[in-house]
Amino acid sequence: MPSHDVMPDMELYQPVQVEDALALAARLGERGWLLGGGQDTYGWLKDRAKRAEALIDLNGIAALRGISETADGIEIGALTSLTEIATSPLINQRYGVLAAAAGRVASPQIRNAGTLGGNVSQDVRCWYYRRGLDCYRAGGNLCYADTPEGMNREHAIFGQSRCVAASPSDTAPALVALDASMVIRSENGERVMPAADYFVGPAIDIRNTTALRTGEILTAVRIPSTWANASFYFEKVADRNVWDFALVSIAVAMKLNGDTISDSRFVAGAVECKPRRLLDVEAAVRGKPRDAATAQSLGDLASRGARTLAHNQYKVPLLNNLVRRALHIA
């Protein structure tokens, strides 16, 4: 029987050592494609919207998996599955906001296969781009979404720069809220950068959602003890509770001193091309109690400066309300 498969012809490498994967990534360059759980990858390849000559499957590298305690917090291997993160007692106890976010990704089966590294490195979900159209992000010179008739209900309300796509990752806002740092390796060595710098918007790089360069592999995510056991809040609003990406999400960490908030992180997802830290909100709630009055006093602070598109004005009240809810619910 002839073999028809929607997967295009590709070579597959299955290294078991990080060094071998790094050598392959360097050698293959743009022709290679790193494979975590593949849950973002297969759509691109099956649709022929992006191509690769070879897949570098990272799943066989045991050193890239698992959750361990460090001198200052925890380290999560980039190949750790989202299910492991959502159900890890350690993460649930100390960094509940990350467990909650990982547990809201896609569906149970996708969380069983999907990795943290893939979740934070996935590409945007703009319809036009995913169809393979030659928009700005694909190297062309127009945006199909930012037009009066464009389907831009899911798109960004902040930080647009030619491209108006929104950040798709559920774990990304939680990692920014926890002041996580990303461990990146290449054949030339290792660099560690704050999660807040790992995610990049179109003004800095319109072709990539992260600071990763060809030949680099995200090997781990480190979470410092800074926010361990803080008060957390995570909420994701989506059309359906399963599969669908966030329309807006909010990840919050708060340190309480008695009744008042001494320090906090408020980070929103799906409102910009990268997680958006709400610095004005953080400043406004400092020294205030976590209650309804503080929530009300914020007004529309969270959404100030938003530039909405034809079909996503609803994200403005949604963002403001999610921020208020994080303060309401004790």
Binding site: P2, S3, H4, D5, V6, M7, P8, D9, E11, L12, Y13, Q14, L24, R48, A54
Partner: peptide, 21 residues
């Protein structure tokens, strides 16, 4: 095969490169 044209590929026996599966 008829409906999708370029959408479906008939995978060929690609020649293997060193280290591949």
């Amino acid at each position: 095969a008829a409906a999708s044209g370029a959408g479906y590929y008939i995978a060929s026996a690609a020649s293997r490169s060193p280290g591949a599966v």
